[in-house]
Amino acid sequence: MPDRPSPDAVRAYYAAQPAPLVAATGIVLDTRGRVLVLTTSYKTDRELPGGTVEDTETPEQGLARELREELDLGVPVGRLLAVDSRPPGPLGRSLIVHIHLVGPLSPQEAAAISFPDGEITAARWLRPEEACAVLPARVAPRLRAGLAALHTGSFAHLVDGVPQPGSPAGLDPARRAALEHAGVMDAASHRASRPKALTAASVLFTSADGRILLVQPAYGRTDRWNLPGGGIDSDLGEIPRDAARREVREELGLDLAPGRLLAVNWSHKPGRPARIRFLYDGGVLDAPDLARIRLDPTELLQWRTVAAEELPALVKGALRRQITACLEARASGAGPLELHAGRL
């Protein structure tokens, strides 16, 4: 095991570096959502992978180099989750840390990790809450904020580990509310820190014999079937009805105006953005209509029509409930329905 440098040697090394120091950290995940935590030969504290950016490197390049040198890991550095700015501490230099997502690593990639340069002596896969408990106080907040940014599809702005007013992710809801009520956030910070929602539009088509049209996605969970439809491009000014028509045209090659709105569904998981789905009546497709379907192979693998009793084996429970509610609304003329995870 290499000798640990003395505290004086460490301070002298960092004192010779330009300020601010720039470092890059990786939140390395496996397919089970566990976090890779390292034990080093030169520190008593556990660490996340990464290190100081050198010479003319970008943070992404520096992190990729550290992953190769420390773990023999040659995987892409993912998106930026957070930035933490630390004022000068015992080493006499301010520090800017970029926190990036790495992975999720496949079981094969995780099993191939080794320690070629001897700086790392052990690596453990821990659940996020376990990782936060064993990491030092300067590192754990970065992991918490980075994971919050990952789950919300957002970004976290930290100063000395503390999420700042207006940080899109990582800001405690109680603190956000207190800042809002105190009136200390400007309009831009207020917008950035408010919770976000993902919006989609789907269309319910049936065949002449009452079977439901489902599509199999070419990405994500290909074992789960969906209704035709997709995300609403609200940033381009698209409204839900136009999105439903566009998605059907792109996915199925059918340019059909959606019928009436049958339901709006709201779903939510803690720590994730809410998901809002607008469900439209596509009407009945006869045999010639079905024969005109032409799939976009980049989005869909296949389509099929199914009886209502076949839905439990093909679609998630929440979507099955939405479809059932929409069929009932269509038959009775009720609606639009207000659904929460498919339930009234």
Rank of each mutant, 00 (worst) to 15 (best):
R138M: 10
T199G: 12
E238K: 12
T206E: 06
A23V: 11
H340R: 09
A329I: 04
A9I: 15
V134F: 14
E299L: 07
T58P: 03
A111C: 07
S94N: 06
N265S: 14
W125G: 02
T40C: 03
P136F: 12
G78D: 05
E70G: 08
R46G: 00
L179A: 14
Y13V: 11
R277K: 13
A122K: 11
A329P: 12
S94H: 02
V28A: 09
P49F: 02
C132G: 07
S114I: 03
R176E: 13
R221Q: 14
Y42H: 14
A19H: 13
A329T: 07
E119A: 10
L214T: 12
E57L: 05
L143R: 06
D172Y: 00
G78Q: 04
L337M: 03
I232A: 00
E251R: 10
R124T: 12
T44V: 13
E129S: 08
Q17G: 14
D30M: 07
A334F: 02
A307C: 07
K43P: 06
D84H: 00
R175H: 12
S6L: 15
E247H: 10
A23E: 08
A140S: 10
I232D: 01
R320D: 15
E310R: 07
P88E: 05
P107T: 05
G166C: 09
L147D: 02
V315F: 08
D186M: 04
G210V: 09
R93I: 03
T25Y: 02
T222Q: 14
A182W: 10
R241T: 10
G229T: 04
A15S: 15
L63G: 00
G62N: 00
L214K: 10
W303R: 03
A287S: 14
H181Q: 14
A331N: 11
A174L: 14
T25V: 07
H98R: 07
H268G: 11
P18N: 14
A23T: 07
S41M: 06
Q322E: 15
P128S: 02
L91N: 13
L71H: 15
V77Y: 01
A111P: 04
E250I: 01
D286W: 09
R191V: 08
A148Y: 10
G342N: 01
C326H: 10
D172G: 05
R124I: 05
E130F: 09
A156L: 03
V248Q: 05
T52M: 13
R241S: 13
I113F: 10
V97I: 08
R211I: 05
P59G: 02
Q61A: 04
A188L: 06
E247L: 13
W266L: 15
L290D: 00
G118F: 10
E109Q: 05
G333S: 06
E238L: 05
A23N: 08
S332D: 08
D3T: 15
L262G: 01
P240H: 05
R249N: 03
R32A: 12
T31P: 15
L327C: 06
I120M: 09
H190S: 09
P5R: 13
E129A: 06
R294G: 06
